[in-house]
C-alpha cells in the first residue's frame, strides 16, 4: 500500500507550493488527500487549481466555501467532496504524513 500524504490547506497564500508538492508526491507514487478549509477555499478559484485534479483526492469544506460566497463546480471535486471538518479528522487518522499549507 502506498504512503499516504494528507494536506490541509487553510490559507490562500501557498497554492504554488501545494501544486509543486502534489506533483512530486504523485510522481513518487504516493496517495494524496487535500482538504481545503477556511481561507484555503479561495484557492479553488485560481486558474491553476485544476492542476491538482487527478493527482489527489480533493475535498472542500462546504461551510467555508459558502461563507466565502462561492458556488459552482470545481475541477476534480465531486458534489460529495464538499464535506465537513470530519474529513480533516479522518485525514489525520488515515494519513502517514500530514502537512498544513
Amino acid at each position: 500500500m502506498a504512503d499516504k500524504l494528507g494536506i490541509l490547506v487553510g490559507s490562500d497564500k501557498f497554492l504554488g507550493y501545494v501544486i509543486q508538492l502534489t506533483k512530486a508526491a504523485y510522481a513518487k507514487g504516493k496517495d494524496i488527500e487535500i482538504f481545503f478549509t477556511g481561507a484555503g477555499v479561495l484557492l479553488t478559484q485560481a486558474p491553476n487549481f485544476k492542476q491538482l485534479a487527478g493527482k489527489a483526492k480533493l475535498s472542500v469544506c462546504d461551510v467555508s466555501f459558502r461563507a466565502a460566497g462561492l458556488s459552482g463546480e470545481l475541477p476534480g471535486v465531486r458534489e460529495t467532496d464538499f464535506t465537513t471538518q470530519a474529513t480533516n479528522a479522518e485525514m489525520i487518522s488515515s494519513c502517514d504524513r500530514y502537512l498544513v499549507f
Binding site: 490541509l8 487553510g10 477556511g38 481561507a39 467555508s64 471538518q85 479528522a89 489525520i92 487518522s93
Partner: peptide, 16 residues
C-alpha cells in the same frame, strides 16, 4: 487573529 475562529473550528473538528 485572522485565523482564530477557523482555528477553533478546526480544533473542534479534529476531535475523535
Amino acid at each position: 487573529i485572522d485565523q482564530q475562529y477557523d482555528g477553533l473550528c478546526l480544533s473542534l473538528g479534529a476531535f475523535c
